[in-house]
Amino acid sequence: MIKKAYIFFIAIAFLLGCKPYSIKRTEKVNTSVSDTGSVDSSLVQIYKPYKISLDSSMNEVLNVSLVEMSTGSPEGKLGNFVSDLSLKIGNELYKEKTGNVADFVLLNNGGLRTFLPKGNITRRKIYELMPFENELVVVTLSAEKANNLFEYIAKKTVDGGTRKQGVPVSGNIKVVLNGLSPKDIFINESPFLGKEYKVITSDYLANGGDNMTFFLNPVKYEKIGIKLRDAIMHYVIDEKKAGKSLDAELDKRISYVE
């Protein structure tokens, strides 16, 4: 009996093992995943307890936005909104801590992960917008590195190119671009001087993220002590407390030579 089985397996092995298989043809179909109308809910059952706990806090409406905000190049309402609130909240904390204030904010559009709709803004939206645990830092740049920063903005802000996302900055700076070079730069209504500047950004970018190499080996690197998401959350809640809705506009903070 055992011997018979042995021979049987040898037969199978020879049938299947002698020559390699080869691909005869292929079929390729990518299928959209949408309501399949199935009654199976085995996976829903697994995530349901997680969802219930999560929804109770995430569905809370924190404020209302008067406009839809999305990223853009050379500027977008969303980038402007997040940069401006980062300057306000960031500098409040930074001043409290050190007595100093930073000059402006630089972030990246890649880090803003969704648009903000017009209407109710829930805590969930803020998490979707800024899911990362990045914190705000102040980086003091040499004159040369600050110059590199503005060259980076110019390179990232060519319109029409699919990979050029634009770079969000706070509204207290004005950059006029001429092709791939910055032509005029104003910071708090003063022309850009060859001097050190203090920039508020995220630790991710300060560590060279999104190829922001000008942030590496800075004059000074200081933590502010707040995550970017929490800064957004605080601002949204504070505005609500002050009876204000959320708003943002395009103000030509980055623009092209006319």
């Binding site: 020559k19 080869s22 079929e27 390729k28 990518n30």
Partner: peptide, 17 residues
Amino acid sequence: NLGRIDYYFTKGQKKKV
């Protein structure tokens, strides 16, 4: 989306088809 590629294999050709 869910990606799908179906491969059909035959056996025994000396040269890969």
